[in-house]
Measured scan of single mutants.
Amino acid sequence: KELVLVLYDYQEKSPREVTVKKGDILTLLNSTNKDWWKVEVDDRQGFIPAAYLKKL
């Protein structure tokens, strides 16, 4: 499984997104879309802008 580091706080703006904090380490589920990556946060799955994440 691939992990990503959150570079900036992000507040979800729709039900398909998730809220994260800078410094969080998340499981990356899908990065095929270059703009929005799907991650897992506390048993929730959702999207975050790829620019907010860095692969570890």
Score class of each variant (00 low, 15 high):
17 E>P: 06
1 K>L: 13
16 R>H: 13
18 V>A: 05
8 Y>A: 13
31 S>L: 04
34 K>A: 15
10 Y>L: 01
12 E>L: 12
15 P>N: 11
37 W>H: 03
50 A>N: 04
10 Y>G: 00
29 L>M: 07
5 L>V: 11
24 D>G: 06
33 N>E: 10
13 K>R: 13
4 V>G: 05
18 V>Y: 03
47 F>K: 02
34 K>C: 09
3 L>S: 07
13 K>V: 08
27 T>D: 06
11 Q>G: 08
47 F>C: 09
48 I>F: 02
9 D>M: 03
27 T>Q: 14
7 L>A: 03
21 K>A: 09
30 N>D: 14
44 R>D: 04
40 E>P: 00
17 E>W: 04
18 V>D: 01
35 D>P: 02
48 I>G: 01
12 E>F: 11
2 E>A: 13
41 V>N: 12
45 Q>T: 14
49 P>W: 03
41 V>E: 02
24 D>H: 08
37 W>T: 02
6 V>G: 00
49 P>F: 03
40 E>K: 11
41 V>G: 07
16 R>N: 13
10 Y>M: 01
1 K>C: 10
45 Q>Y: 10
48 I>Q: 00
13 K>L: 09
3 L>D: 04
23 G>T: 01
35 D>L: 14
35 D>I: 14
20 V>T: 04
32 T>Y: 10
46 G>L: 08
17 E>F: 05
49 P>I: 02
16 R>K: 14
10 Y>F: 06
47 F>S: 03
39 V>F: 01
7 L>R: 05
22 K>Y: 05
47 F>T: 04
6 V>I: 04
19 T>R: 05
15 P>F: 08
33 N>C: 09
39 V>H: 00
16 R>G: 15
9 D>F: 03
11 Q>L: 15
11 Q>C: 11
12 E>P: 10
21 K>T: 10
39 V>E: 00
23 G>K: 02
28 L>C: 09
17 E>A: 05
31 S>Y: 08
54 K>E: 11
53 L>D: 00
25 I>E: 03
11 Q>S: 15
43 D>G: 14
20 V>N: 00
3 L>P: 04
8 Y>H: 15
37 W>A: 03
21 K>W: 11
12 E>D: 05
35 D>G: 10
30 N>L: 11
30 N>E: 15
37 W>G: 01
46 G>N: 02
7 L>P: 00
13 K>A: 11
2 E>Q: 12
19 T>D: 03
34 K>P: 14
2 E>P: 11
37 W>M: 02
54 K>I: 14
6 V>T: 03
26 L>S: 01
14 S>M: 08
31 S>F: 07
32 T>E: 15
41 V>Y: 09
30 N>W: 08
4 V>D: 00
9 D>A: 07
7 L>M: 09
12 E>W: 08
11 Q>P: 06
25 I>A: 02
49 P>N: 04
56 L>D: 03
1 K>M: 13
52 Y>I: 15
18 V>K: 02
48 I>C: 10
55 K>L: 14
41 V>F: 10
20 V>L: 03
36 W>Q: 03
9 D>Y: 04
52 Y>L: 11
29 L>Q: 04
56 L>F: 09
20 V>A: 15
8 Y>R: 13
29 L>T: 06
27 T>L: 15
16 R>V: 12
38 K>M: 14
32 T>A: 15
13 K>S: 11
45 Q>D: 09
35 D>F: 15
18 V>T: 04
8 Y>P: 00
8 Y>W: 12
1 K>H: 11
45 Q>V: 14
20 V>F: 03
18 V>H: 03
48 I>N: 01
47 F>D: 04
47 F>H: 06
16 R>S: 13
49 P>T: 01
50 A>Q: 07
50 A>S: 13
41 V>A: 11
17 E>V: 03
31 S>N: 09
51 A>V: 13
56 L>I: 13
12 E>G: 14
14 S>C: 07
44 R>H: 08
17 E>N: 06
17 E>C: 05
7 L>C: 06
8 Y>L: 10
1 K>A: 13
15 P>V: 09
49 P>K: 04
31 S>H: 09
24 D>E: 12
34 K>S: 12
31 S>R: 08
20 V>G: 05
18 V>C: 07
24 D>K: 07
27 T>S: 11
52 Y>E: 01
26 L>Y: 05
48 I>A: 14
53 L>P: 01
4 V>L: 04
14 S>E: 09
43 D>M: 10
31 S>A: 14
35 D>T: 14
29 L>C: 07
46 G>A: 12
27 T>H: 15
14 S>N: 13
51 A>P: 12
35 D>V: 14
30 N>F: 06
53 L>I: 07
35 D>C: 11
20 V>C: 08
10 Y>A: 00
53 L>T: 06
33 N>W: 08
23 G>P: 00
33 N>A: 09
23 G>H: 05
28 L>H: 01
5 L>Y: 10
48 I>K: 00
21 K>Y: 14
43 D>L: 11
28 L>E: 01
55 K>M: 09
4 V>K: 00
38 K>S: 09
31 S>W: 11
19 T>A: 04
50 A>Y: 03
3 L>N: 06
25 I>C: 05
52 Y>M: 08
13 K>E: 09
34 K>R: 10
27 T>Y: 12
24 D>T: 13
25 I>D: 00
48 I>P: 00
52 Y>C: 08
15 P>T: 09
45 Q>P: 06
26 L>Q: 02
7 L>E: 03
29 L>I: 13
12 E>I: 12
13 K>G: 08
53 L>C: 12
34 K>V: 12
39 V>Q: 00
7 L>K: 06
7 L>D: 01
29 L>R: 03
40 E>R: 10
2 E>Y: 11
8 Y>D: 09
42 D>V: 12
14 S>D: 15
39 V>P: 00
18 V>G: 02
29 L>W: 05
37 W>P: 01
15 P>H: 10
9 D>G: 06
42 D>H: 13
41 V>P: 00
40 E>C: 09
24 D>I: 06
24 D>W: 15
26 L>I: 14
16 R>F: 14
